[in-house]
Structures are given as structure tokens and as C-alpha cells.
């Protein structure tokens, strides 16, 4: 049963056009890293770590990662609900938590497979090899955790509303990019902060001007577990109460 659910979700998610578009967008930071590597900037005023944090930390982890997760997370369940194919699954004796968990897992795996290698490769290219400060692994870990948490949130959101994509965009661009920066206490309700908080365990240049995650590792781990559990529980509840043709 699980295999069928995984296969259906993966085949639906990784359509050629969607994957090609995401691949094209994710090629941009690699291209920028290559340009940096072979330009004068590589030995200039901006340190390699600062450039890596700027490009990988900001562009990939805080912008491209949530966008890819949003596209795949909302497509994993929301697209099926929208086009009516979800009725095929919903009229089978399958526990709703299983549907949510598998949809989340597949979307997260697809997001991670696309984003984590790009995150690590970009860091590698900028440094011209593996980094001693743990930046490559740390940012890769942040991308992995972010992929899981963002997808859990967006799959749950798509079980609740047909406007998950819009709400997701508002969350990424208004809440995380703006509100959490404006009010420091809001870092506790930000997937991005939980994801980057994990990297504190690996990256040695944290707590410096270069890189300073706003949550400690322990807080990030606890927060991540809470977000993941709450998203799966909420998504399961929403799907259990799902009514055909009644989506707001």
C-alpha cells in the first residue's frame, strides 16, 4: 500500500515540465557560484564564507528552498484534490494520517533531492573544494531540514484549502521574509529559523558577523519536531473532514 502511494505521488510530482522548471531555477545559484569562482571577486574584499552565506544561505535556503517546497508540497496533495483524482485515494480504506505522512515524505524527498545537492555543490564551487568550517555540510543540513518542514506545512495547508499556494507565498514572502525580521520574537514561529538553527551544530563560523542563526540547535530541534508533528496532525484532521467540492 505504501509503495503504491509513494509511486503515485512521485509520478504525479515529478512531471517533466515541473521538474525542468525547478531544475532551471536551481541552476542559477550554481551558475552564479561558477562566475564568482572564476572572477576577481573570489580573492576580493568579501570573504568566501560571506559570499557563500549570502548566496547559499540567502538565495537557496531562504528563498529557493521554500519556493520549491511550496510547489512540490502543494502539488503532492492539493493538485490531486483540485483535479478530482484524490477521490481515488479517499475512497480506499487508507488511514488519512498515512496519506498525509507519505505525501509529506515524498514531497520532502523530492525537494531535498533537488535542493540539497545544489546547496552543497554551490558551497563547494565557491570554496573551490570541501570547507573546513563545516559550511557545506551545515547548509546542506539546513536545506534538508527545511525541505521536510516546509513540505509538511504546505501539504497540511493543501489538505485544508485550495488556496494553499497563495497562503504559502504569503507565508514565505510576508511572514518569513518580513515579519520575522521585524520582530525578533517571531523567530519562534518560522520554519526558516528552525532549519538554519540545525546548522549551528556543524558550522564553526556561527555566532559571528558572517553567520549567526537566530535559534540554538536545541531550540531548533524541538521546534522542528513540534512543527512536523503539528503539520501531520493538522493535515490528517483536515483530510479526515475533507468534503468533495466544498473547498474554500
Amino acid at each position: 500500500m505504501n509503495r503504491v502511494l509513494i509511486s503515485l505521488t512521485a509520478r504525479q510530482l515529478l512531471g517533466r515540465r515541473r521538474t525542468a522548471l525547478i531544475g532551471f531555477v536551481l541552476a542559477l545559484p550554481i551558475l552564479i557560484a561558477v562566475i564568482y569562482r572564476f572572477s576577481d571577486e573570489a580573492g576580493g574584499d568579501t570573504s568566501t564564507e560571506e559570499f557563500a552565506i549570502g548566496l547559499v544561505g540567502t538565495l537557496i535556503v531562504t528563498l529557493l528552498l521554500p519556493l520549491v517546497a511550496l510547489v512540490l508540497g502543494t502539488a503532492a496533495l492539493g493538485a490531486e484534490i483540485e483535479d478530482g483524482t484524490a477521490v481515488f485515494l479517499l475512497t480506499k480504506p487508507i488511514e488519512r494520517w498515512r496519506i498525509i505522512a507519505i505525501k509529506t515524505g515524498v514531497a520532502a524527498a523530492a525537494t531535498a533531492v533537488l535542493v540539497v545537492p545544489v546547496t552543497m555543490a554551490t558551497t563547494w564551487i565557491i570554496h573551490g573544494g570541501p570547507t573546513a568550517d563545516g559550511l557545506m555540510l551545515g547548509l546542506g543540513l539546513a536545506a534538508l531540514v527545511g525541505a521536510i518542514l516546509y513540505c509538511a506545512v504546505f501539504v497540511a495547508l493543501s489538505a485544508f484549502t485550495s488556496r494553499a499556494l497563495i497562503f504559502g507565498l504569503i507565508y514565505v514572502f510576508v511572514w518569513e521574509a518580513f515579519a520575522t525580521n521585524l520582530f525578533n520574537s517571531l523567530r519562534w514561529v518560522s520554519v526558516r529559523e528552525y532549519a538554519t538553527g540545525w546548522s549551528d551544530a556543524i558550522i564553526s563560523v556561527t555566532d559571528t558577523d558572517i553567520y549567526d542563526p537566530r535559534l540554538a540547535v536545541a531550540s531548533a530541534v524541538i521546534g522542528s519536531i513540534v512543527v512536523l508533528s503539528a503539520a501531520v496532525a493538522y493535515g490528517t484532521r483536515a483530510l479526515s473532514r475533507f468534503e468533495i467540492g466544498e473547498r474554500a
Binding site: Q12, G15, G84, T91, P93
Partner: peptide
């Protein structure tokens, strides 16, 4: 909210949506 009943019920919905792949 009784998913167990789908073991003895079959539904053919009007909407003709199937997985195209």
C-alpha cells in the same frame, strides 16, 4: 469518517478524472 467501509463500497464518480500517467 468511516474509512473501513470502503472495503465493501465502490464508487464511480461522475468527474472523469484519472491519473493520466
Amino acid at each position: 469518517q468511516n474509512i473501513g467501509m470502503y472495503a465493501q463500497v465502490g464508487l464511480v464518480p461522475e468527474r472523469e478524472t484519472v491519473y493520466p500517467f
